[in-house]
Write a protein that binds this DNA or RNA. Structure first.
Lengths: 101, 101
DNA sequence: AAAGTTAGTTACATAAAGTAACTTGTGATT
DNA sequence: AATCACAAGTTACTTTATGTAACTAACTTT
């Protein structure tokens, strides 16, 4: 990959947000915590990739994972402040899509 | 791929914007037209993919392609209204990246 | 003890992205 | 006339990411 003048922060952000499903997962969590299966059924994503994406988002500090030791186990995901700070962005994409498609 | 309750317009928008480089290409064009080589050298993207992305963006009506029959040939790309309507979104991503990374 | 439930994981097939060399059209240079 | 330079791609090939479906772990209810 070539080097570039591109701002490293923006590059990093786009590396994350530009990945398939990432923005839609954040979009699903904007209105509050959801569990794994809820996200999985609200998007056409497989468990394999959802699991992978949630791990990335957790690692980057946009998403927080909480395990409830019930039976069967319940796991909830919710946005951190860093993740929620993207609300305007994902809302902007949503309204753009409604206006132009 | 599973079916979902997801809004088809948003799904379509994300299919486009979620592709690698797409948002960064739009970002490069926000301040005005650029030619192929300028975009290529301002991003760590190869000619192969840049060409592919620009075709997609042109097909979806976000980008306009203009050929100038000079020697050597000059080709400029610029945003349409539909593409420019994403300015707030890409600016939002940029400021988020500066604040949180 | 067999079946159900959530939240994953594994193995394998297909599609997308990365890399580098090649092509096309045109005019200028040797 | 043959070679070279240049922008804007394209082609062939390799590597990585994604899609699909079957499987696992832990624990409960039937």
């Amino acid at each position: 990959m070539k080097e570039t003048l591109l701002c490293p922060r923006l590059a990093k952000a786009m590396e994350l947000l530009g990945k398939r499903w990432t923005a839609l997962i954040i979009f699903q969590l904007i209105d509050g915590a959801k569990r794994f299966n809820e996200i999985e059924s609200s998007l056409p994503i497989s468990g394999r990739l959802l699991s992978e994406r949630l791990k990335e988002l957790e690692k980057e500090g946009l998403v927080e994972r909480t395990v409830f030791s019930e039976v069967p186990v319940r796991v909830e995901y919710n946005l951190t402040d860093k993740g929620y700070a993207l609300k305007d962005v994902v809302d902007g994409i949503e309204s753009w899509s409604k206006e132009w498609f």
